[in-house]
Amino acid sequence: MSIQPATDAAYSAPPLLAVEALSCERDERWLFRELDFMLSGGEILQIEGPNGSGKTTLLKILSGQFNDHEGEVYWRGQPVSRARGDFLASLLYLGHQPGIKGALTALENLAWYQALGGVVDRVAGVDSVNAPWAALAAVGLAGFEDVPAQQLSAGQQRRIALARLHLTPRALWVLDEPFTAIDIEGVAALEQLLLAHAERGGSVVMTTHHRFSDPSRLRRIQLGGNVDGQRPALDEESA
């Protein structure tokens, strides 16, 4: 499976992410086979497919969490397995669960992520102390900074997680169903945020069924899967 670049813009730098002959087998069943694609700065890759087609697994492979696969994932021309430190330092992954502690406030939750990812001293004129406040304001949580997250709605908890997109500067965003539990207004804002990230040279990989209003930077990849649930016979030579 391969994908043609969606835009004719010339990207001179090596692709941020390149995938070569990626196959993943779980319990003797192929989730997907021989995936080939590249992702350059400024592109948004949307992974689609029916349930059980391996979307989340592909995201986990692309975010370096799961390495039990065949084929190679390259980060800026280097295998991820070898450039792991640099890769993880450029990656922001948001999974199914928001990763937010109910007993802690929004600010405390963000503080942990800041400490894990490294605190940026000055951010577009905002220092590291004020940055979380600004990030929470940017996702519409102004006034909720000191409220324990368990008192917030599921959508608001997801917004705390989304605040990390404002707070942690990373070139590659890998997002698993980012539009889940977000209201209509939030969806539009998130779409704009993703597009703005791409416009500034960042890349996004995500699974979603959301239809972008502006598909210019969008590329799609369809994971076929075996919808009828049959186990295909494996080819001996590739085993």
């Binding site: 003797e28 069943r29 186990r231 295909p232 016979a233 494996l234 080819d235 001996e236 085993a239």
Partner: peptide, 10 residues
């Protein structure tokens, strides 16, 4: 058991 789907076992 594990390779039951593969060609050689079949």
């Amino acid at each position: 058991r594990r390779e039951s789907a593969k060609q050689w076992v079949r």
